[in-house]
Nucleic acid binder design. Sequence first.
DNA 1: AATATCTTGCAGTCG
DNA 2: GCAAGATATT
Length: 725
Amino acid sequence: MDVTPILDGLNDAQRQAVTAAAEPMLVLAGAGSGKTRVLVHRIAWLIEVERVSPLGILAVTFTNKASAEMRARIETLLNMPVGNLWVGTFHGLAHRLLRRHYQEAQLPQGFQIIDSDDQLRIIKRMIKGLELDETAWVPREVQYFINAQKDEGRRAANMDDRGDYSRAQMIKLYQSYQDICERSGLVDFAELLLRAHELWLKNPDILGHYQRRFQHVLVDEFQDTNTIQYAWLRVLTGKTGIPFAVGDDDQSIYGWRGARGENMQRLQTDFPGISLIKLEQNYRSTANILNAANAVIDNNAGRLGKKLWTDDNEGDPIRIYNAYNERDEAEFITARIQDWVAQGNARADIAILYRSNAQSRVFEEAFFQNSVPYRVYGGLRFFERAEIKDAMGYLRLIQNRDDDASFERIINLPTRGIGAATITIIRDCARANATPMWHAALSSAGGQLSARAANAVQTFLALIEKIDEDTQGLDLHEQVNRTINQSGLIAHYKKEKGERGEARIENLDELVTAAEGFEPDDAELELPPLMAFLAHAALEAGDDQADKWEDCVQMMTLHSAKGLEFPLVFMAGVEEGLFPHKRSINDPSGLEEERRLCYVGITRAMQQLYISHAEQRRMWGSETYAQASRFINEIPAELVEDIRPKIAVSPPAFNSSNRQAVRRPNAATRSDAPIKLGQRVSHAKFGEGVVMNYEGAGPHARVQVNFEYEGMKWLVMSYAKLELL
DNA sequence: AATATCTTGCAGTCG
DNA sequence: GCAAGATATT
């Protein structure tokens, strides 16, 4: 047996983990230490050397991307397809189990998965239907409450209100929401996991089957598991299963969705003899980048303790850019990207990382203007677009008439004479009889509808039946195509004026193309095509729609960057209030999670890292002002090179940073405006200040100046008589 | 009931 | 600065 390809190029710690005996193992793997590599090689080792059947191995990841990549790497390494090896996300695997055992899980065969947007809509309608005050019972908070309970494995029926009225009401809402889902055959993301767990607990025979089958359970990003995911894994491994968990407590950034970094410690208590291996050698970043990351994360308490090191040389300093505003920041980054590309490097090697999706906008504008190809990850994804959801609403109703969420979404879209009043009657009737709305509509809400309304409703029902009938037996894409046409959605959006309508039609066309190119993965192969397609849409949301092959700059949030690496990284908007986010700033554990997020960001960079922050930023249509993030100050000064485009000789007084500025005469050149951003000026009354912004040109131009003592003011040039300093 | 116009809330991160 | 929801208008 030649094991060379499996062991080649592994360091001691990695090889130890890969070749370990069949016993529980926890691998504490720092960023860039070859975490995925160890997992992939471990699986290859089990199959090739230990002669474990691929059937006996379960590999769990968090993202679809990670599981696709893992399978691909395993197959490359083994040089053969391993279709019977289960690799998937927690949600994907739970879904697969629930489809296989829908009866034991007490789900209808055609159950549908809803995303958080659908969930929120259901909750909103429910609150309205119960005639509760929406300001007292905020839909978002109710949603958060419900999901948090599910993440912890709690059902409304088993919850104690602790004599607290508001808690009691929340529990009632949780129950009521659950009733709606049951009636409609809908399952939300958290429900997938909870149901899959309950499926095993309630059906020892099914559990026994999977326990016998999956002797080896490998988990990536273990620090991100939440309570229910941990419980699910724990139940599966039982007394004989062998967990192989890989994680990094310093990269635990999903606390807000219930992740428990403590699960790493818990695994050690649950499996007392578990082996612990630390991977501390980083193969990704320069020493400067790594040292910066280590210095930042060192400010967190209660870490499992590991120190990343590298053989790599120091590399370039971390470059900090202090921008005037977000446009300046974007222009600076655009210029640096153009330099990088001019030196013969690839755009695809560049990532712009930011804290929130909304920040992508400014960059998109700047890149568009400068013809820089880019790709934005996340944000509004394909299957989350309104028109796509409308089309999916029809498809879902065809698949499952009980789906109230879809029913309400499309009953009057396009408008067909069914107004709010009619829908309310149907909804109330459905609730009174605890039936799906489709059923209530069939009887025209027990005859409560006016003749005209009843007629319109029956026409709608007939339309759905007709589409169902007409599309029976057609290929999936033809089914989708017929549906969007017969539903009248295409005609409806054609009437919508402007580019908006056109874009929507294009997206609907793209939906047909997506259906045409849809290849169910092996779990989905077991399902009818339409059902597989709908489930796929809910679980994947269309992340990888864009052209991967084009050489373009990659833009994404810090969260979605985890697991990736780029030669050149820009971290933008690193400001107090934005990063760390203002909602976490006063909460010590929240702040530590932000810091871990910063650690994740820094460690994405291989060769060069730029961190930028803007003094002024337009948010929700108005200006905000912020200081450089505390995280920037946590990076040792000797690793840093400050870049300031200020021509000003005297240092700006309002800037708290005390680093030495590096002069860059060219960076500030901004068109031929008489006044430059960052220009120091003096005003007879207000004293000295710095130009932060301007509008227009000539004598009518207005400039915004940040005065040392008077603060921010807008001035008209022709009156202000500013003296340039 | 449909459409036009105004107001409000939003955007913190994901499957 | 935008989209969904509320309100006004037809």
